[in-house]
C-alpha cells in the first residue's frame, strides 16, 4: 500500500480532529479577516435605520437553542441597532424554545441600554398555532395575548397602549431557523396587514429566502453567521460573528485542502500498475 492509498483509507476521526483544530486556532489566536457587506444585509440595516425615533418594531424569536451560535450574534447586532436608535420593541415567538431565547436577549439589552420593560420593550411570549397566531395578532393583539411573558395584563402595559394589531408596527424583524407556518409572518402577516419584514435566518434557510427578497416580500436577508458578521461590520464592532467567520474561513480552507488531497490521492492511486496474474 503506497502513501496515496493510505491517505484514501485514513481514519475519519483524524479528519474530525483536523477540522476541530482548524476551527480552534483562529479563536485562540483571535486574528481577523476583512468582512464585506452584501446588499441583502444592507437592506435590513437600511430599513431599520430609516425608522423614526420611537417607532415600533416587532421581533419574532423563532429559533431553537441548536441555532443559537448562528442566530444569537445576529439577534444581538440587530437589537443593538434597534435600541441604539431609540426604537421600541415588542417580542413574540411562535415556538416554545423562543421564550427562553427572547427573554435572555431582552435581559442582555436591558443591561446594555438601561431599558425598562413595559416602556422600551415588552415580550408577549409564546402561543401555539403558527399562522393562527399571526392572524390573531393582526386582528386583535391584546385579545390574542391577554397576558405578556411577565404575567402582566397587556391592556395595562404602557408600550402596548396604541398597539392593537400588526398594522400598528412600523417594522418587523423575523429571526428564524425554519419556515414556521409556511413562512407565516410573510404569507399571512405582511400580505394581510402590510407590515414590512426583515429576515434574519440560519444559513441553511437563506437560499429559501431569496425568492421572497426577489418578490420584495422582505426588505433584506441576514443569513447565518456570515450575515451576522456583516451586520456587526455595519454596526462598527467586532463581535462573536466576525470572530467566528475567521474560524469558518479557516475550516473552509481545511475542507478544500482535504477535498483536493482526497481527489489527488484517488487519481494517483489509480495509476499504480496492476500486477500480472500469476500462472
Amino acid at each position: 500500500m503506497n502513501i496515496w492509498e493510505r491517505i484514501l483509507q485514513i481514519d475519519r476521526r483524524y479528519i474530525f480532529l483536523l477540522i476541530g483544530i482548524s476551527g480552534a486556532i483562529p479563536i485562540i489566536m483571535s486574528f481577523s479577516l476583512p468582512t464585506f457587506v452584501t446588499p441583502e444585509v444592507r437592506g435590513v440595516y437600511n430599513a431599520i435605520d430609516a425608522l423614526p425615533e420611537g417607532a415600533m418594531v416587532l421581533v419574532s424569536f423563532d429559533y431553537e437553542p441548536s441555532a443559537m451560535p448562528e442566530m444569537d450574534p445576529m439577534a444581538k447586532a440587530i437589537l443593538r441597532h434597534i435600541f441604539g436608535r431609540g426604537l421600541k420593541v415588542v417580542g413574540v415567538t411562535l415556538i416554545p424554545y423562543g421564550t427562553g431565547i427572547g427573554e435572555e436577549l431582552f435581559v442582555a439589552m436591558e443591561r446594555e441600554f438601561n431599558l425598562k420593560q413595559g416602556v422600551d420593550y415588552d415580550f408577549l411570549g409564546y402561543k401555539p398555532g403558527y399562522q393562527a397566531v399571526v392572524l390573531g395578532l393582526g386582528q386583535d393583539l391584546k385579545g390574542s395575548f391577554p397576558k405578556n411573558f411577565y404575567e402582566q395584563d397587556t391592556r395595562t402595559v404602557p408600550i402596548l397602549k396604541d398597539i392593537n394589531s400588526l398594522r400598528d408596527f412600523d417594522y418587523m424583524m423575523w429571526l428564524h431557523d425554519d419556515a414556521y407556518g409556511g413562512y407565516g409572518w410573510i404569507i399571512y402577516g405582511r400580505q394581510n396587514y402590510g407590515i414590512d419584514i426583515g429576515s434574519g435566518c440560519t444559513a441553511i434557510l437563506a437560499t429559501g429566502m431569496y425568492p421572497f427578497l426577489q418578490a420584495e416580500q422582505v426588505t433584506g436577508i441576514v443569513g447565518g453567521l456570515k450575515g451576522a458578521a456583516e451586520y456587526e461590520k455595519l454596526m462598527g464592532y467586532t463581535g462573536s460573528a466576525r470572530l467566528g467567520m475567521v474560524a469558518q474561513s479557516s475550516i473552509h480552507v481545511m475542507i478544500i485542502g482535504l477535498i483536493l488531497l482526497g481527489n489527488i490521492a484517488f487519481i494517483l492511486s489509480k495509476r499504480k500498475p496492476k500486477k500480472e496474474p500469476s500462472g
Binding site: 476551527g23 451560535p69 444559513a203 441553511i204 447565518g224 453567521l225
Partner: peptide
C-alpha cells in the same frame, strides 16, 4: 454550501464557548 456553513457555525459556537 449554506448547510455546511450552518453546521460549521454550530461547531464554532461550541469551540468559542469551550475556549473563551
Amino acid at each position: 454550501g449554506y448547510m455546511v456553513m450552518g453546521r460549521e457555525s454550530i461547531l464554532i459556537g461550541r469551540l468559542n464557548f469551550l475556549i473563551l
